[in-house]
Simulated scan of single mutants.
Amino acid sequence: MQQFPDVELSNRLKIPILGLGTSHYGGYSHDAVVYALQQCGVRHIDTAKRYGCEEALSKSISESGVPRDQLWITTKLWPGDYGYRSAKEACRASCQRLGVEYLDLYLMHWPDCGVPGRSNRDVRAETWRALEEMYDEGLCRAIGVSNFLIPHLEELKEDGGVVPHVNQVEFHPFQQPWPLVEFCRREGVAFEGYCPLAKGQALDHPLIVALAHKYGRSASQICIRWSIQNRIITIPKSTKPERIRENCQVFGFTLADGDMERVGRLHTDKKLIRLGYPLWNG
């Protein structure tokens, strides 16, 4: 069974560069997760309270038989739980649902907080203080953020003591936020990209299809390989075992520099996930 390369975080922990994403609205399959863990060598699973599948993931992990210390489990704190006390309560509740004593990575899910009468910055700072304490206690082996832009990270750097270990943001051929990626790397924040297939929209692009033919690979493998080759921690989602296996078979080939550049020119600033409070209720 193959082992995936790691990315070293600023605290020296190593996260597998390829993981399996989960989601709500039918985005979870027990059998597919068990297959990914048992047959594909997946050891990095990404979830969130918002997705509503933490308890299901606990059952899948248990059935897989993979020891806890071989897994990297990420979950996320929903903005409705932001705040010092509520963040700690939410983290412990996630651990209970996941059936674990600690999290490998805990992320603030969105930068916008939506707390009446309080600034987003103040709420983020208070919430981050709770995450820092849980990190110091060992409840979270690493802490980070998701969907944070450069101004949010700059404020958190001023207001907090621990620089986020990870920033998880939308990243695919049509959405390449390189200024944010480079800022994160300068600050020691590992960049993790979700939605690497652009919700399937990249799979029929003529260039991606042509490269798939050139390399004898699938379109999804081209997209994932391109992301990984850019040193982006990548978490494709799938509920189909055959697709998960396909998505994991991306370490036996390399895209030529010219082809990397050609995919790099596909950026149109197309965002499939929009920041903002209305989405939280969607």
Rank of each mutant, 00 (worst) to 15 (best):
A90V: 04
V33C: 12
E192T: 14
P173I: 12
P111S: 04
R118Y: 05
Y215G: 08
V163P: 00
P151S: 08
E54T: 10
N281V: 00
C195Y: 09
L103N: 09
D259P: 01
L77T: 05
L105C: 14
D69M: 06
R118H: 10
Y106R: 07
L37D: 03
P116V: 08
D112P: 00
M108F: 03
S23I: 02
G117H: 01
R43S: 06
I224H: 07
H152F: 10
L279E: 13
K237H: 10
P164L: 01
K49D: 08
K88A: 09
K214A: 14
E63A: 14
P206Q: 07
D69I: 02
A210F: 00
T74F: 00
A87G: 07
D6F: 14
I232V: 15
L279A: 11
R50D: 00
R243V: 09
W178C: 03
D104F: 00
Y25P: 00
L279S: 13
Q201E: 13
P79A: 04
H165W: 05
G83F: 03
L197K: 03
Q221P: 04
S60N: 01
W110M: 03
Y35A: 15
K271Q: 14
D122M: 03
G138I: 09
N247D: 10
P173N: 01
S218G: 10
G21A: 06
Y135T: 02
R129Q: 13
N281K: 12
E187L: 01
M260H: 08
L103I: 03
K76W: 00
V33T: 12
K270F: 09
S23P: 00
Q3L: 14
G114M: 02
G216T: 07
D159H: 09
K59R: 15
A93K: 14
R129N: 08
K88Q: 15
I235P: 04
L139D: 06
I143C: 03
N11A: 07
L275A: 12
R225G: 09
L57H: 06
E170R: 05
S64I: 02
T75Y: 07
H205E: 14
S23Q: 13
T239E: 11
D269C: 07
E89I: 06
V115M: 10
T254D: 13
P79D: 03
L203I: 07
C184Y: 05
Q201H: 12
F191H: 08
S60K: 02
D136M: 11
T127L: 02
E101S: 15
L275N: 14
E170H: 03
D122N: 07
D204W: 12
E155D: 15
K214E: 13
G161N: 10
V145T: 14
R124V: 04
L9F: 12
G26F: 09
R265F: 02
P5C: 08
G258W: 00
G27R: 03
Q249H: 13
R121G: 06
R225I: 08
D6G: 02
H24S: 13
W226C: 05
I150D: 02
G282D: 12
G200C: 09
R121P: 01
K199C: 12
Y25F: 12
I244S: 11
D81V: 00
I232D: 06
G264S: 11
G138D: 11
S58P: 01
V209G: 01
A56C: 03
G80R: 11
G160V: 07
E89N: 10
A90F: 00
K76E: 06
G252Q: 12
G41Y: 06
S238M: 07
